[in-house]
């Protein structure tokens, strides 16, 4: 049972990070470069999950994704299944919940690249999209690494939103954090210890690795 929770957690974190890299990268670029008056509100919106209790997000997601909610109803009509208490529903919730952890490092990395290298690339004949992939992305490699690792680790650690949207269906929506909670409720302290220590160690190692790479004077990733 514990192993299946670990597997669900890893799957959820991986899928969430992939989705976030795909939709978060253009969003981060826009936030780093736009002069639109919408930039500040969007920036705040992206940061909301940092300050909101995860139950607030979970509550609204439950309403949105539920069979009677605007998104959930559409999903039921299209697929015949409900979004709540499903892995897909968890991915959608996690994507929103971990959004700032992925978007902000990439946004800051893009901002640090600045206009200079992009103008230089344009003067060398690179179209904007070419310059984005050949200059901005490689020069932001450390930001992408930080984003992926933080997004992954943070999704692993999510509890309240997952509980509200996904419940605890073994093999489907029961992630490590919820398994720990249930072990403790049932006074299975041994199993709770194993999972907790594992999560703690994993998160620590990952963060040490990220900080090490970010502190290196000539990071391997940059070349």
């Amino acid at each position: 049972m514990s192993l299946s929770a670990v597997w669900i957690s890893l799957q959820l974190a991986s899928v969430t990070v992939l989705v976030l890299l795909v939709i978060g990268t253009p969003l981060a670029w826009w936030l780093a470069n736009s002069r639109s008056r919408w930039r500040v509100p969007v920036d705040a919106l992206v940061a909301l999950p940092l300050v909101l209790p995860s139950t607030v997000l979970g509550f609204y997601m439950l309403i949105l994704l539920g069979p009677a909610g605007p998104i959930g109803r559409f999903w039921v009509a299209a697929t015949g299944e409900t979004l709540t208490f499903s892995f897909t529903g968890l991915v959608i919730t996690s994507v929103l919940y971990s959004l700032p952890f992925v978007v902000q490092p990439i946004r800051d990395a893009f901002a640090a690249v600045g206009r200079g290298p992009m103008e230089a690339a344009a003067s060398l004949g690179a179209r904007p999209i070419d310059a984005f992939f050949s200059i901005a992305c490689p020069q932001s490699a450390r930001g992408f690494l930080t984003a992926a690792v933080l997004g992954f680790a943070h999704t692993l650690g999510e509890f309240g939103a997952v509980l509200m949207v996904g419940g605890s269906i073994p093999g489907e929506t029961r992630v490590v954090a919820i398994a720990i909670y249930e072990h403790v409720e049932m006074l299975e302290y041994g199993a709770a210890h194993t999972l907790s220590a594992g999560l703690l160690l994993f998160s620590f190692v990952v963060l040490v690795a990220v900080y090490t790479v970010n502190r290196a004077r000539h990071p391997v990733l940059l070349r």
Partner: peptide, 29 residues
Amino acid sequence: PAHRRQVGMVFQDARLFAHLSVRQNLGYA
């Protein structure tokens, strides 16, 4: 747009691409 004008530009701060070697910088152009 800038990338379609046949203009070469050298900036005060050189603006070489830090993630590319000199050979790759020249190759980029």
